[in-house]
């Protein structure tokens, strides 16, 4: 028997219920899913299929109602809010559809944000944030506010913020949802590069098949369950 490498993240019979009684909605209904290191997983499915909920659980932003979620072997369900914050701080970076940058705050300060909570010194923070911004192609725009940047640029600031702490995983929730095709491709190429060159695992929710083609695994949700889970050849 060959020793099996434990998956980075594993969902075991995860259920997530919102509301109670008649208003009860089962967003996730007994989901099992294992994601290994360095995978690039795209999660697809119609609205209300539970794909975003699955992502929030995987990203430790939300707690499941039932079942076990293990992240690097740790049962996340048993952790407090603060302990989950530590997991996010050290291992997970987020990219959201709406960018979620701090308003009236420069790109540089936005990217520095995760490092503040890691207790990294100001000078070191600045250096790392500059480097991350350079990696996403935003040299020279470090001191721009989000309001002075285009959507594609804002999303790149968000990606810089996600990768600045060198996380194990990037969670991307509809990262190209607000962008045109050309801008979307740029974002996907960036994500692909961090997956391939830096070995970061990527979990991405999308409803665009073109974008899902960049992943090497496609998980399809329907009605809170996994409908299909296939490995595919990457595009590009």
């Amino acid at each position: 028997m060959t020793p099996e490498v434990p998956p980075l993240m594993s969902l075991e019979a995860i259920t997530k219920v919102y509301g109670t009684g008649d208003a009860e909605v089962r967003a996730l209904d007994g989901v099992d899913l294992a994601i290994a290191e360095k995978e690039f997983v795209a999660i697809m499915g119609p609205s209300g299929s539970g794909k975003s909920t699955a992502m929030n659980v995987l990203g430790c932003l939300d707690a499941p109602s039932d079942g076990h979620y293990r992240f690097m072997g740790v049962d996340v369900g048993a952790l407090s809010l603060d302990q989950r914050a530590l997991l996010r701080r050290n291992y997970i970076g987020f990219v959201f559809q709406g960018y979620n940058l701090l308003a009236r705050t420069s790109a540089l300060e936005n990217v520095e944000l995760p490092l503040i909570y890691k207790g990294i010194s100001a000078a070191e923070r600045r250096a790392q944030a500059m480097e991350a911004l350079a990696k996403v192609g935003l040299e020279g725009r470090e001191h721009h506010d989000p309001s002075q940047l285009s959507g594609g640029q804002q999303q790149r600031v968000a990606i810089a913020r996600a990768i600045v702490g060198r996380p194990a995983v990037i969670m991307a929730d509809e990262p190209t949802g607000n962008l045109d095709t050309a801008r979307s491709r740029e974002i996907m190429e960036l994500l692909t590069r961090f997956n391939r060159d830096d070995g970061m695992t990527i979990v991405m929710v999308t409803h665009e098949a073109d974008m899902a083609d960049y992943a090497d695994r496609l998980v399809h949700f329907v009605d809170g369950r996994i409908d299909s889970d296939v490995t595919q050849q990457r595009a590009a």
Binding site: A85, R88, P114, Y117, R161
Partner: peptide, 19 residues
């Protein structure tokens, strides 16, 4: 509303309640 979203962002990148 704005502050709650800001807090959400800070929590997402790993801030603890206390901080």
């Amino acid at each position: 509303t704005e502050r709650t979203r800001e807090i959400g962002i800070r929590l997402a990148v790993g801030a603890q309640e206390r901080q």
